[in-house]
């Protein structure tokens, strides 16, 4: 089977929608997301992201999105 691809994903946090509830950081299985001083998620470990999308699925405010970095640049 193909190994897990890392380092090609982009995590976008819509700050206008985010309420800093901390669910995405709690769900992340690869410690990609860390809360900043105000509780909003940052992605210091973006290189470890495996595109499981658990943060995106469990964001109650539709404020986080994981996509391919290449797609993000083109858009």
């Amino acid at each position: 089977m193909a190994s897990v691809v890392r380092g090609v994903y982009h995590i976008e946090v819509y700050r206008a929608l985010c309420k800093a509830c901390g669910l995405c950081t709690a769900w992340c299985p690869q410690a990609v997301l860390e809360p900043d001083a105000e509780g909003y998620p940052l992605a210091p470990g973006l290189a470890n992201c495996i595109n499981c999308k658990l943060c995106e699925r469990h964001c109650p405010d539709f404020a986080i999105e994981v996509s391919l970095a290449a797609v993000e640049k083109r858009a």
């Binding site: 206008a16 929608l17 309420k19 901390g22 669910l23 699925r57 469990h58 964001c59 109650p60 405010d61």
Partner: peptide, 17 residues
């Protein structure tokens, strides 16, 4: 209409999605 008036972390957003 967003962000919603629900409290941070409320599961209602997950149900809506």
């Amino acid at each position: 209409m967003l962000p919603s008036t629900w409290c941070p972390g409320c599961g209602l957003g997950i149900i809506l999605s």
